[in-house]
Design a protein around this nucleic acid. Structure first.
Lengths: 133, 133
DNA sequence: ATGTGCATGGGAACCATTCTCACTTGCGGT
DNA sequence: ACCGCAAGTGAGAATGGTTCCCATGCACAT
């Protein structure tokens, strides 16, 4: 049974406030700054649970760190993430789904899953970055 | 300047012998078993160098561990990997490249990179697995 | 109000990877 | 062949994200 605790409420509140992907440690720090006292282990546990329930999206950055973000779509989808500011666009990608299914079948693989993420620099960050160039 | 050492020769030899993705630790173990004495740190360093030169493909499994494999294609490509035996198929995927480029442009992102990997169970492993079902 | 058992926290444990640094060795120059 | 030295190596320490442990806390049905 899932209990509603002070800590989980704080995490939920925080997630509702940001659109960007954040690491567990960042979230922990943000909670501290917001005056909530939540253990790091609890943040990890909570994010894990939320991820299992499909309430947050998880992806790994280039360093292998897990990043979390509340998700709107419950169905499978992909992301376009700004590598500077974390701004994220959720993507439907029927093309990718079809590609994965076809390729898997063509090679006799079953239970084919796929990962696909796009990383780039958003227009705003690109503009800002060009100032000092 | 790149020097040819006993250790690098051993790693190169080993990579030439297998088609499957292996972790640095697995490679290290395999070298030991083959009678070569190569430090773990050296394996990591070597794989890093090879990866930078585009001589091996690198991908991360679900646990975030880095897996390596010699690659035939020097150009960007994707993989279909058997999650049981590691058997790997290299994929051209113009579809995915186009998708990534279009989506990036549509949202004003620049320098868009992408990752896309397929994981499944190959025909052989699926057959073997169904025996005890 | 109370009991039960899920939840919490903080510090230790884990584990892949990287760093350190003294020692070895490939290799170009002589 | 021999030297010199910078590149390479290895064993262990350090790092850093994540999970585990377990005594204590607390949500919630009764």
């Amino acid at each position: 049974m899932q209990r509603m605790t002070r800590q989980r409420a704080a995490v939920g509140e925080l997630l509702a406030d940001t659109d960007d992907f954040r690491s567990a440690q960042q979230l922990h720090e943000m909670l501290r700054e917001a005056g909530h006292s939540v253990g790091l282990a609890t943040v990890y546990r909570t994010m894990q649970t939320l991820a299992e329930n499909g309430d947050v999206d998880v992806l790994r950055n280039a360093e292998g760190e897990s990043l979390y973000r509340r998700c709107r779509k419950q169905v499978h989808h992909h992301h376009l993430v700004c590598r500077d500011c974390g701004r994220t666009v959720e993507l439907d990608a029927a093309i990718v789904e079809h590609w994965a299914a076809e390729v898997g079948q063509a090679h006799g693989f079953v239970d084919v899953e796929h990962t696909a993420e796009l990383f780039g620099t958003c227009a705003q960050c690109a503009r800002r970055g060009s100032h000092d160039a």
